[in-house]
Design a protein around this nucleic acid. Sequence first.
RNA 1: GGGCCCGUAGCUUAGGUUGGUUGGAGCACCCGGCUGAUAACCGGGAGGUCAAGAGUUCAAAUCUCUUCGGGCCCA
Length: 1043
Amino acid sequence: MIKSPPQKYIPKEFEEKIQKFWTENNIFKKSVILRKGCKPYVFLEGPPTANGLPHPGHVLTRVMKDLILRYHAMNGYYIERKAGWDTHGLPVEIEVEKKIGLKDKQAVEDYGIKKFNEKCRKSVFKYEAAWVSITDRIGFWLDMSNPYITLKNEYIESVWWSLKQAWEKKLLYHGHKVVPYCPRCGTALSAHEIAQGYKTVEEPSIFVKFKLKKEDAYFLAWTTTPWTLISNAALAVHPDETYIKVRYNGQTLIFAEERAAVLLKGQEYELLDGFSGKKLENVEYEPLFNYYKPDKKAWYVICADFVTMDDGTGIVHIAPAFGEDDYNVGKKYELPVIQLVKLDGTFKDEVTLWKGQFVKDADPNIIKHLEERGLVEGVKEYVHEYPFCWRCDSPLLYYAMESWFIAMSKVQESLIKNNDQIKWYPKHLQQGRFGDFIRDVKDWALSRNRYWGTPLPIWTCTNKTCRHRICVGSIDELKSLSDNFTDDYDLHKPFVDELIVRCPKCQSEMKREKEVIDCWYDSGSAFFAQWHYPFENKEKFKENFPVDFISEALDQTRGWFYSLLAISTFLFDENPYKNVLTLGLVLDKDNQKMSKSKKNYVDPNIILDHEGADALRWYLISANAPWVSTRFYEGAVKDTFGKFILTLWNSYNFFTTYASLDKFDPKKDIIPLKSRQFLDKWVLSRFNKTITEVRKYVKTFEIHKASRAIESFVVEDFSNWYLRRSRKRLWVEEKTDDKLSGYSTMYDVFLGLSKVLAPFIPFITETIYLNLRTDDMSESVHLCDYLEPNEKQVDEKLEEGMERIRTLVEIGRALRSKIGIKVKYPLNSATLVCGKDIEDSIKDLLDLLNEEINVKHISFARDTSQFMTKMAKPNYSSLGPKFKDKAKIILGKIESWDKIELYEELMKNKEIVIELDTEKIKLTKDDFETIEKEKEHVAFAEVEDMTLFLDTVLTPELEAEGFAREMVRRIQSMRKELDLDVEDKITTEVKVDPDRKKALQQWEEYIKGETRSKKITFVEKPTGRLVKKWTIDKLVAEIGIDK
RNA sequence: GGGCCCGUAGCUUAGGUUGGUUGGAGCACCCGGCUGAUAACCGGGAGGUCAAGAGUUCAAAUCUCUUCGGGCCCA
């Protein structure tokens, strides 16, 4: 039996109750088991790290994932929802370093790597409880009891296996990478570390001359880091830019034409020659210094796209040891990496002039030296951003460090091909940000000189004559190679480094490369490593590859989305996921990124407590397209709660209040559809069309459109029109068929809505469903099938008619407001001018219009002539294309005509002639539009194809009736003031002036009925429990009522 | 420095692919109405240089370019 729930909806209380219901009845588990054996929809969870607290962005991704998964589950797919945790990486180490007060890597090693990593292992799950709690609280159904965890031996083993595949395909190699490096701390810094250390500094920059080998001319280059000139290996030009040779100040210089204006401003010079950068390629020059004897060809011109014309000379000095661009282009041209700086940032002994000096301090001396040699064309102070170490404030050096790489550039074509197989939402990312990235893919710098991570499984033989290298691909392999492998192994450092591994070639001891790997590689392996593939679950992996759906925020594009594709491409040459939904960032009220330091961070828990998970979910889902950034603040969620969640609840509450009063039984009292009212059929038609829309939009992840379609149905169609128009049907005492027809429809809609909305707002829908379900239905709405639209219930013609009626009501009310006659006062007649088809479409629904705008009779007419005067005005979209630039002058001429005359002339002659200079221009009917003005005692309003006329004459009879309704309203409000029950009878005493008394007496029965008055008496001094004086249209009336 | 996305009323936004007379809506505000859904509802009003500038066109929120602002990613 349908119960009447409490009036007030307190989100936290209600949602906790549902949570309890789910837990106690194992609903989540049942929802998975229910679909076992069905077609799978494979989801892969992007593993968060529980090293920090979840923030609003995580809430958004979790809500969106949950919605998509619930939707597919209800549509009959089998979905495993395995949780995952990302557990390695620098942020974890830094957190631990801070906690135990370790300043640098040396301090970590002194502290002991074993102890340190144990701390990391614990730290990683520091906030697990907070994660689990918020995941539950927002209703994200995820199997957190059996997650994949990147630090587990099994997981690491799978990762190792994949690295060995790369090794065997010759994709894993040892090379250099230029990284920002702190010479004092002796460590490379990661991107986010340098981000916090940028400072604006003013430093000398110099223009340096490099003499050509075969010609008495100089290349002019510019640098902000004079100390790198010692390690110069080449000069770079842009292949497509123009370079010039000029005679200036008694010497011949070569540089970019575009820079000449700035460099030689106001100077005299002679232009000798001009050529493209490409022409300069391979031209050799004399090295500035001879501290280095290159083993490869050096000191010649190369071409590079990164050379800009924004500053400098258009010729860039290249030192592969000290710049990433330099290093990469150096590799392309096989330039030597000239490394004359020690790891402590001082020059090596070979640099005789400055040996032992810190490079930055040597800058002035180097400049002086070059000036003395006549090789400096100018020095200027240059202001720019330069990175400093956030720990010790030393200037950082870009330094080529040894590193392990995966040669992604070798599989670039496959990357592109596999990316093309993926469906990206939004689409532009595929060829845009992501496509650009992989078309310009760099080798993946895999190794990290750190402690807490998956160890790089590469061992090198210590025997200098052997030097054999192996990549270990499994635990068994490692076991067989080592002498001291124990059963309580842990594949992290220091265990792996303490193993005594024998070289398979020479039996000498091998040593592991000391690095760990990038933790992006860990998470990017999730699609196979979560199954411990290929050591276990081979079948399972096959079934779950490629994954159907992943979704994370935009910042993961080149993070996880890339690492998955990269690994899957070189392992299997296939795309790892079919659909990827990229979500926009969650920003604060002022469009700023949320961060704890800015203190603009909104704690989702506060909102969950006040507005609840449903309101939070609905806001995040409906506010914006998923891929657009969303502002997040409590006020916004509060609005959502009031507008949508409460409207839904109030509507539902209205229905259940009456349905339970009448003991409506869905098993017995349902009226068949064909016997229901037009209004009922209409709302069901709208509902079914809404389902179609929702299904269409969810398919393309246009979730905002899906939710807006539902919201509009619930608020506009169902609540504000259907229920409002149905209220009176429920007020009759008896169980009429009409009333049951209304109940049946409301029941259908609410039960339906609970299913349609279940993936979106799982809590309130469950509350509604549990109350409405009969015992032959599933025990939870989340075990139901999603709704398919019932085409038979869609009635386009009825919808069209209702749309017209609603439009007419709207313009009718506006019209009454305009003419100043309240809706309470009935009017005699309304006439609707429209076509026959429109008349047919609305004639069954006229009662609704009648009541809403309160007129006695509505009639139809085919034309407006009896009410209107016609006029003509120019039609811009016809005149524009016809007369182009003359249109404006013609319009000017037409404006001076009287509009009524214009119309009559047009009707009479079928054309209007306009004289334009010597030309006569003929305008036809198509060049005009007709407008109309109403006659006396008539008010009108029009929309597209209908015009509504009201007879504005208010007769004494009509006024009396209106006055009676005014009285009824007053008495009703007095009843309410006394807090009377709907059923209570009253006696009423009234004092009005004699004229009004007469008028009211005609409506006595009506007033009695409406106000449940046993009798009404007209007295001089009304008495009763409540007596009030009212002023109605300037007339005073006194009313007393008594129970 | 490079790439991509975004900018419409005080706030949240629709429209933009296909240029066309007056750029829709909700919240908040003001006026009026309604009153057994009341944290509601209905009608009206005020509020917009569609970020700015330029171009294409008879006609630009819409197409193109530039600038500014915000965001993300990569340097």
